[in-house]
């Protein structure tokens, strides 16, 4: 699904948009089965509909709260800010859209990254946010995914990405397309260094992001019924002029065809990630023979500019 066709999402988070016809109240409507759900129940259920099990979209910050041990998340590279290099203008100027995304989400772009612990196990995290320009990948998203992987290489810790995206960001054109190459290049580096990469797909995970790093996890996990695919439904329908099969491009469909390892309820995601971090890394004999597993070797990969900025931030 292209990012502009988003399903309505009635989030209770501050800063999220709320359609004016829905009162600020005790209930919200499930985006899928339209049942009215007691807001507190919806939140306690991690934004999963208790009636139909629909996994509603969550922001990057909500996701961090759901996944990471309290107080352990340390954000990095939050100063990376998109620029309108191509001076892109359609019906709206890209620069204006960046501004709006910023106001709407309180973030500079569609991703939050950093390190954190999951059941005590440290990982480098890059978590996308669909609320900012449909979670599209431009230079900033690509760079932050890349740096999260570089950090994993430098500190010899696993990396986890959570995608929520309609694909590459059109308004950065070829620069966005090349982020597919950049992030995949780092996946090759992770392979070479033997560092685990777990890719978590949430609704939606499609197009340019799915055809790059998101598909390259050593293990790929998807949330139930989330949209996973390359081409948009509309484009496919126009091309093949036939009705699409039931459940087409859902997590379950993609798993059935062999491209997703685990379809996992949101409530269980944290436990599954912790188990995988253990199997792939923290309990692996290879990692144990790897010294203390914390060497900074390979940190020359991150650019001098980045290091200088990080130092400046630390001071």
């Amino acid at each position: 699904m292209p990012w502009f066709e988003k399903k309505p999402k009635f989030s209770s988070l501050p800063g999220a948009v709320r359609p004016s016809n829905v009162p600020e109240g005790l209930y919200e409507k499930c985006p899928d089965c339209y049942s009215m759900i007691y807001r507190k129940e919806f939140e306690e259920n991690l934004h999963v509909c208790p009636k139909c099990h629909y996994h509603a979209r969550v922001s990057a910050r909500e996701r961090i709260v759901m996944l990471v041990d309290p107080g352990t998340f340390q954000e990095d590279n939050s100063h990376l800010s998109p620029v309108d290099k191509l001076q892109f203008e359609a019906k709206k100027k890209y620069s204006k859209q960046i501004e709006e995304g910023r106001k709407k989400t309180g973030q500079l772009d569609a991703i939050v990254s950093g390190i954190g612990k999951i059941h005590g196990k440290t990982a480098s995290l890059a978590i996308m946010d669909f609320t900012f320009l449909g979670g599209s990948m431009g230079s900033v998203v690509g760079e932050k995914v890349t740096r999260a992987m570089e950090r994993a290489l430098a500190e010899r810790i696993p990396v986890i990405t959570v995608t929520a995206t309609g694909g590459a960001r059109m308004m950065e054109s070829i620069l966005s397309l090349m982020q597919m190459a950049k992030t995949s290049a780092l996946c090759a580096e992770l392979d070479r260094a033997g560092i685990p990469f777990i890719s978590v797909l949430s609704d939606p995970s499609t197009a340019g992001v799915m055809a790059s790093f998101a598909a390259l996890g050593d293990v790929i996990i998807a949330e139930p019924r989330c949209l996973v695919g390359f081409a948009g439904r509309r484009v496919i329908e126009q091309t093949v002029r036939e009705h699409l099969p039931k459940g087409f491009q859902t997590a379950e469909f993609v798993q059935e065809h062999g491209f997703v390892d685990i379809v996992c309820e949101r409530r269980e995601l944290r436990g599954v990630l912790a188990r995988l971090l253990n199997h792939l890394w923290y309990a692996s004999p290879k990692r144990k023979s790897d010294g203390n597993g914390r060497s900074r070797a390979g940190s020359e990969r991150s650019s001098k500019k980045t290091q200088a900025v990080e130092q400046a931030v630390a001071q």
């Binding site: 995949s184 055809a211 790059s212």
Partner: peptide, 19 residues
């Protein structure tokens, strides 16, 4: 952009090639 291309993992094929 076709049904079978999706079923056979278009995104995986492209991603793997790039890597």
């Amino acid at each position: 952009p076709g049904v079978q291309a999706e079923e056979r993992g278009q995104f995986e094929a492209i991603a793997r090639n790039i890597r």
